[in-house]
């Protein structure tokens, strides 16, 4: 029994090989079937992303007083929410459960009462603000100061800080960690993000060229973590977060889920369990989803709270000239007018 016997045995059995043609056809058939199934799942994930960005909440936070959320969760069954909606999205750098997590970026999705289009409004994390019960400090510390067990307390103090600062009612909110964003992005097969300038990752040495590009989950998270080497530090990152969110919304729009609320909520049911969404009350969801097809366009407008330069401690202060007008327009649900008057303050998202 030699090695040559082995070689000969293999060679002798080569005629057993099935012809490639039928196998190839079977592969194509199976792949097409699986692609269709995957597409259905992906549309579901897109619906989920849209809901996360536009107004419903991946992780509904208990402890939010119901008095504060009349538009969203109150009056169940009363139909589509009317009036402006503000959803606070807190991007968290560390995973749930780790010590003293800092809010990395704060983004409010504002949907005006006329449902014309969504606005993505960034609040600088280094903004010096009065934190209820904790004096004045950077906005991002509110999360850590409030955080007890779980993320709910951190979110709640952040929400109260934001409400005091802006005078805008926060209707709902979500805490998004990087792993959640990564999964979401991958489930949608990537997101197209358009950058005005090249970004070099200080974490992975990845270079994001200027211009539009497809990013998978890992790359998106990498981009969202970049801050130090960017102009204006955290604020350019906030704008990158807007660009990413805009890409996510656009991707969801491409899937056609925006126009079909029935399919949207059915798909949400399909995908919901896989993404471990914890709803304190899911019954308001269909009502909320009805907001989505009412939007005239899903192309968001990126805005930021006007602020001045950073002081010696890296804190930034509100721009006392421009900020009051912006906040007044926001509170009065007249942001479209403000944007028309201040086109230079809009973030280019594509």
């Amino acid at each position: 029994m030699t090695e040559d016997d082995l070689r000969a045995a293999f060679a002798r059995h080569e005629p057993l090989t099935p012809p490639a043609g039928p196998v190839r056809a079977a592969i194509d058939r199976l792949a097409a079937r699986r692609r269709r199934r995957r597409q259905r799942l992906r549309i579901g994930a897109a619906a989920f992303a849209l809901v996360g960005v536009l107004g419903v909440v991946p992780q509904f936070l208990p402890g939010t007083p119901t008095r504060e959320t009349p538009t969203v969760m109150g009056d169940r069954g009363a139909g589509t929410p009317t009036g402006a909606l503000n959803v606070l999205l807190v991007g968290l750098d560390s995973a749930a459960g780790s010590r003293a997590p800092m809010a990395d970026s704060l983004l409010i999705v504002h949907v005006p009462a006329d449902r014309s289009r969504p606005y993505l409004i960034s609040l600088p994390r280094d903004l010096a603000v009065p934190i209820p019960g904790h004096g004045t400090d950077k906005l991002n510390t509110a999360f850590a100061r409030g955080a007890g067990p779980g993320l709910a307390a951190g979110y709640d103090l952040t929400r109260r800080t934001v409400t005091d600062l802006t005078g805008v009612r926060v209707d709902a909110g979500a805490v998004l960690t990087y792993p959640v964003l990564r999964e979401l992005t991958d489930a949608m097969d990537g997101v197209r993000v358009c950058l005005p300038e090249q970004v070099r990752s200080s974490h992975t040495r990845r270079v994001f060229p200027a211009g539009c590009q497809w990013l998978d989950g890992a790359a998106s998270v990498d981009l969202l973590r970049q801050r130090r080497d960017l102009p204006e530090d955290g604020r350019e990152r906030d704008r990158d977060a807007q660009r990413y969110a805009a890409g996510l919304v656009r991707r969801a729009g491409e899937q056609g889920v925006l126009t079909n609320p029935v399919r949207l909520s059915r798909l949400l049911d399909l995908v919901g369990p896989n993404l471990t969404v914890s709803w304190t009350d899911g019954r308001g969801l269909p009502d909320l989803l009805r907001v989505v097809p009412d939007l005239r366009t899903t192309e968001p407008v990126g805005l930021g709270l006007p602020v001045g330069a950073a002081d010696g401690q890296g804190r930034v202060l509100m721009d006392t000239r421009a900020a009051p007008g912006f906040l007044a327009a926001w509170r009065a649900d007249r942001l479209a007018e403000w944007v028309a008057a201040e086109p230079g303050r809009v973030t280019r998202l594509r």
Binding site: L16, T17, P18, V23, A26, I27, L30, R34
Partner: peptide, 15 residues
């Protein structure tokens, strides 16, 4: 078995 093995692998390859 060979056909099934190749088929399963190549479907994943294609996707």
């Amino acid at each position: 078995q060979a056909q099934d093995l190749v088929q399963d692998t190549m479907v994943r390859v294609q996707l």
